[in-house]
Amino acid sequence: MKSVFFFDSMLTPKIITIVYWLLLVAVLISGLSTMFAGYQPNILAGLAMIVGGAIGARIWCELMIVLFKINENLQKMANKSDVEKN
Rank of each mutant, 00 (worst) to 15 (best):
V19W: 14
K80M: 08
Y20G: 04
K2F: 03
V27E: 00
W21G: 02
V4N: 09
K85W: 06
L63H: 07
E62Q: 09
A26N: 06
F36C: 06
S30F: 07
L67A: 11
L44R: 01
K76E: 14
K85N: 03
G38R: 00
Y20H: 13
M35L: 10
N71Q: 13
F36N: 08
I65C: 00
E72K: 12
I70G: 06
T34L: 03
V25F: 15
I59K: 06
L28E: 08
G31C: 02
T34D: 07
A48E: 01
F7Y: 06
Q75I: 13
K76F: 15
Q75K: 15
M77W: 12
Q75R: 15
I65V: 14
L47F: 12
N73S: 09
L63D: 02
E62M: 09
P41V: 01
I16D: 11
C61H: 02
I70D: 10
K80S: 09
I15Y: 11
G38N: 01
A57Y: 05
C61F: 01
L22K: 07
K14A: 15
S9M: 04
L32E: 08
A45R: 01
G38Y: 02
G46E: 07
Q75E: 11
W21L: 14
A57H: 05
V83T: 09
L22H: 05
A54S: 15
A78K: 15
